[in-house]
């Protein structure tokens, strides 16, 4: 994993990294991905992909309304709010 990839992933994840961190992370992340790549040596052509480790199928619920948060509770922790709305910096300049 090169520094370019680290920058790209950091940008997608909205992480601000210092220059020094980028080089270190490129090294660390490469070690992790190489470690995982060892599994590529195994022949798993006849093994079904594991989507989920827990075999808990059909865990659904009926279409019944339960109480929601009161409006003031819903926005209580918001850094900024306005008349019951969450208020955020402008999305469109």
């Amino acid at each position: 994993m090169d520094e370019h990839t680290v920058r790209h992933v950091a940008k997608l994840a909205r992480l601000e990294l210092a220059e020094g961190e980028i080089a270190r992370l490129a090294g660390d992340l490469s070690k992790i991905t190489h470690y995982i790549e060892q599994m590529g040596k195994l022949d798993v052509r006849h093994v079904e992909a594991t989507i989920h480790p827990v075999v808990d199928e059909n865990a659904w619920r009926p279409d019944e309304i339960h109480a929601s948060f009161p409006r003031d509770v819903a926005v209580k922790n918001a850094p900024d709010k306005d008349q019951g709305f969450f208020k955020v910096p402008p999305v469109i300049e």
Partner: peptide, 20 residues
């Protein structure tokens, strides 16, 4: 009647953030 993954009511035009 309710959302896809929680039991909040689905309603068009309700007061902002009243179904969360």
């Amino acid at each position: 009647k309710t959302k896809a993954f929680c039991s909040c009511k689905v309603e068009f035009g309700a007061p902002a953030n009243s179904h969360t």
